[in-house]
Simulated scan of single mutants.
Amino acid sequence: MDLLRILATDYWSALAGGHGDTVAFRVFSPNTFSPNESETTRTNARAIRERTFTYGDRTLVMWRHLKIGSAETTAETIRVHFDWVPDEKRIVIGWCGEHRYRRER
């Protein structure tokens, strides 16, 4: 819950204040937030599909994510994929659940 609170308060405030992810992500530790995915994941069709969500009339690929837990089992980890919609100053969460598909390196 702490990470979601930080997402909705400190991170939101940084982005709403006009700062990009380079400033905004400092509210999280590197082990809990990722502003992007690896090149391997970003170029994998299945990974793209599983990170693509509809918000209103928009289609958003949500690379940004919170990493809650680090085990490879679904019982011990949660990923929260989200995106920033700047014209609405809104954080949209597309996924909260088990780790989405990624291509093994």
Rank of each mutant, 00 (worst) to 15 (best):
L4Q: 00
W63E: 07
T22D: 14
I68P: 02
T74C: 12
H99A: 13
T41Y: 08
Y101N: 12
T9N: 08
A75F: 14
W95N: 05
R103L: 15
N36E: 12
E76C: 10
R90W: 08
R105M: 10
L4V: 01
D83R: 08
V27K: 02
S34Q: 06
E88Y: 01
T41G: 08
T41P: 04
R103I: 14
E98S: 14
R5E: 09
S70T: 13
N31L: 12
E50T: 11
A75W: 10
R51W: 07
D57I: 13
R49S: 09
S29C: 10
S34Y: 00
W12D: 00
A16M: 06
T40E: 13
G69L: 01
Y11E: 01
L66P: 05
R58W: 11
S38R: 11
P35H: 09
A16P: 01
I6L: 09
T59D: 05
V92E: 06
Y55A: 10
K67R: 14
R102L: 13
E104R: 14
F33W: 09
G97P: 05
R26G: 13
P86T: 06
R46E: 09
I91E: 06
E50L: 14
E104Y: 12
R103G: 08
L60P: 07
G97Y: 09
I48V: 13
G69P: 03
R46N: 03
R90S: 09
I93K: 04
V27W: 02
F33K: 00
R51D: 05
Y11P: 02
T54A: 15
G94R: 01
A16G: 00
H19P: 01
S13T: 08
Y55R: 09
K89H: 14
S70H: 15
I6W: 03
P86D: 06
Y101F: 15
G18K: 03
R46M: 09
L3Q: 01
D57W: 13
I78S: 06
L60Q: 05
R46I: 13
H81W: 03
T52P: 02
T41F: 08
N44K: 07
T54R: 15
I68G: 00
F53E: 05
G17F: 04
L15T: 04
T77E: 01
I68A: 01
F82G: 00
N36L: 10
P86A: 13
P30N: 04
N44C: 15
T22C: 12
R64G: 05
A14K: 00
D2Y: 07
D2G: 06
N44P: 00
S34M: 05
E37I: 12
L60T: 03
N31M: 12
D2M: 11
A8I: 02
R49V: 11
G17T: 00
T22A: 11
P86Q: 08
N44F: 08
H65E: 03
A71M: 11
E104S: 15
R26C: 07
